[in-house]
Design a protein around this nucleic acid. Structure first.
Lengths: 113, 113
DNA sequence: ATAAAATACTATGACAGACAAAGTAATTAT
DNA sequence: ATAATTACTTTGTCTGTCATAGTATTTTAT
């Protein structure tokens, strides 16, 4: 792995990552983006466009709601807040992820020994 | 997770699973399919068409080679054999997968506590 | 013996998530 | 004053998986 995680291995995790961040606090789009970059030391080079479509999807599914921040001082910031449905979805996604990991480890690792 | 792993969480793992099976022995297409179904108790409901495109891809990348089995008794069976390049690729994929797991756990799990 | 089911391979088109590339506009740093 | 960063958005492309379908042989059930 030369400094970059393949998109296919990440596919399907974006929404969960976003929900996870919003579980703590509301956040605006670019803040979420930066947060992911920082916390993975830039190894997870998720693109802004990818996050943007995630926000769209999550809003459509009523897992998050958006609102504009106070624009009186500084540039516009679109904040996102997780909903109750979003919290349930997040927990489900984590459970799915752990389950998938077990299955994949069964398939991928048993050949090594 | 109601009896089925989401396609998006599996994406990108198919080639590695196929290579892993071929690391042990040569195998034919349908055998690989059945093997995956059996070993995951049907939870990983990978489709034949998905495997078929994986074989195509792996052949094109010279990670596997195909040959027809002895058709004198019984129906036709197309066998696949892993190449040296395929073995290297397999190890690389496993390393990538483990690395990705670490990063994802960092992102997905730290919110739970 | 015949029908049904399983084995075994293949092809085509659609879908969806991620990406590349680009753009707009305000703010902050040099 | 200029460049860099912040911040949001759009459009089109790529690719792995799936849905669906088909062909042909072999095995199992009736």
């Amino acid at each position: 792995m030369e400094g970059r995680i393949s998109a296919d291995l990440l596919r399907g995790h974006t929404d969960t990552i976003v929900l996870g961040i919003l579980m703590k606090n509301d956040a605006y789009g670019y803040q979420i983006y930066k947060s992911i970059m920082d916390r993975t030391d830039g190894l997870y080079q998720l693109k802004e466009a990818t996050l943007y479509s995630s926000y769209k999807r999550l809003e459509k599914e009523a897992c998050i709601v958006a609102y504009w921040g106070d624009e009186s001082q500084g540039g516009r910031r679109k904040y996102y807040r997780i909903t109750d449905k979003g919290r349930i979805q997040y927990k489900q996604n984590i459970a799915d992820w752990e389950f998938t990991q077990r299955i994949l480890n069964r398939l991928l690792k048993e050949e090594i020994d």
